[in-house]
C-alpha cells in the first residue's frame, strides 16, 4: 500500500460485460440487513451510483 492506499500505477476501469457477478454481491441497507444486489433490478432497471466516499 502507498499513501492513503492510493494506486502506485495508473489503473483502468473495467465495465463488466454483464451484471451476473455484480448481482451476486451482498451489501447492507441502513438497517444493517443483508441485500443481494440482484434484488435491486429484479423487477425494473436500476441505476447504481457508486460513491467515492462520504464527506
Amino acid at each position: 500500500m502507498s499513501l492513503l492506499g492510493t494506486a502506485r500505477r495508473r489503473q483502468s476501469t473495467h465495465a463488466p460485460a454483464d451484471a451476473r457477478e455484480l448481482g451476486a454481491a451482498v451489501v447492507r441497507d441502513l438497517d444493517d440487513r443483508e441485500v443481494r444486489l440482484r434484488e435491486l433490478w429484479r423487477d425494473r432497471p436500476a441505476v447504481l451510483v457508486f460513491l467515492r466516499h462520504y464527506g
Binding site: 454483464d18 451484471a19 455484480l22 432497471p45 436500476a46 451510483v49 457508486f50 466516499h53 462520504y54 464527506g55
Partner: peptide
C-alpha cells in the same frame, strides 16, 4: 469533510436491466 471509506476508491454509475445486461 472527514473521509469515510477507502480514500482512493473511485466511483461510477451503472444502469442494469432485469436480465443482468448492462
Amino acid at each position: 469533510g472527514r473521509t469515510v471509506g477507502h480514500p482512493a476508491q473511485l466511483g461510477g454509475v451503472l444502469v442494469v436491466r432485469p436480465d443482468d445486461s448492462i
